[in-house]
Design a protein around this nucleic acid. Structure first.
Length: 278
DNA sequence: CCCTACCCCTGGGGGC
DNA sequence: TGCCCCCAGGGGTAGG
């Protein structure tokens, strides 16, 4: 489910439920997520007060009153449901209950998500976070910074932007949207995206991510907001999952089947308009 | 370096 | 209806 806008939406939904409350109870029904839960997971969390809920790239960071940090990643299919209805299902692997009686269930059918523990004062050195590139909505992400990270890389710009070391939080959908609004072909070499192209990439990144966050992220089959509300940015995708449709800007028809093409790069679908994106 | 192939896992959708 | 294959927003590894 989640790229940066979805994770940001989840954090904003969780914060009012969690911040200032204590974790009264933590129940674990499966420890074998992408990596196994730490042995001391439950005792390290139960009784702790939550001071903040933050995001770094696609990671959710829950800061505890003892200096610990709960690090969560939703993988492809992870969700955090607030006060979900009905009994827990087979994919509710971890359940948190606050001292106010609110219940947060972590559901993840594919179990590509993970939970780990870190320390706030050394969080930047945590193995999961140490290699992450700059926050795309933060002050240090600008054309110069991006160009430095793209220089010399003989890999398609699509792959470079998916690499979390280049910039943190982008995934397959939003990279495609960003390249579309930056008028850059997903196949162009990263090393050839410096200068004005890097400026366009930074501008497009901010535009796409800000609009997606304002829309509550994208919902595919499932809701993304803990409250159960649907994000609606999927209705604003320009290219993702639109192969064969006309490009929304030029209405061009490159062939009988329309303007937006689908190719496969590194085993993943890429959608783009062959007229605008060069 | 960089690429491809393949791995982890489950479920949904389309074609037959 | 069922079955089979492909596909999926994540990250990671081995080998060429």
């Amino acid at each position: 489910m989640p790229e940066l806008p979805e994770v940001e939406t989840v954090c904003r939904g969780l914060a009012p439920i969690l911040v200032g409350r204590r974790l009264a109870r933590v129940r674990v029904s499966r420890r074998d997520l992408r990596r196994p839960l730490p042995a001391d997971f439950v005792p390290r969390l139960e009784g702790r007060r939550i001071d903040a809920v933050r995001r770094r790239g696609k990671y959710i960071l829950v800061e505890l009153d003892d200096g610990g940090v709960l690090i969560m990643h939703l993988g492809m299919s992870g969700r955090l449901e607030i006060d979900g209805a009905g009994p827990p299902g087979p994919h509710h692997h971890v359940i948190f209950e606050t001292d106010a009686g609110r219940v947060i269930r972590f559901s993840d059918p594919r179990r590509f998500g993970l939970m780990a523990l870190g320390e706030a004062d050394t969080l930047g050195d945590h193995p999961l976070l140490a290699g992450l590139g700059p926050e795309p909505l933060g002050p240090e992400f600008d054309a110069d910074a991006l160009a430095r990270r793209l220089a010399g890389r003989r890999t398609p710009i699509k792959a470079a932007l998916l690499d979390q070391r280049t910039v943190a939080g982008l995934g397959n959908i939003y990279v495609g949207e960003i390249l579309y609004w930056a008028d850059i072909s997903p196949r162009r070499l990263a090393a050839h995206c410096l200068g004005r192209r890097a400026e366009r990439l930074v501008r497009a990144t901010r535009k796409v991510l800000e609009e997606a966050i304002a829309a509550g992220g994208s919902s595919l089959r499932d809701y993304v907001q803990p409250s159960g509300e649907l994000g609606y940015f999927q209705h604003r995708w320009a290219v993702y999952d639109r192969a064969g449709e006309a490009c929304p800007r030029c209405d061009c028809r490159l062939s009988r089947t329309g303007g937006i093409r689908r190719i496969v790069q590194a085993g993943r679908s890429t959608f783009y308009c062959g007229r605008w994106q060069r």
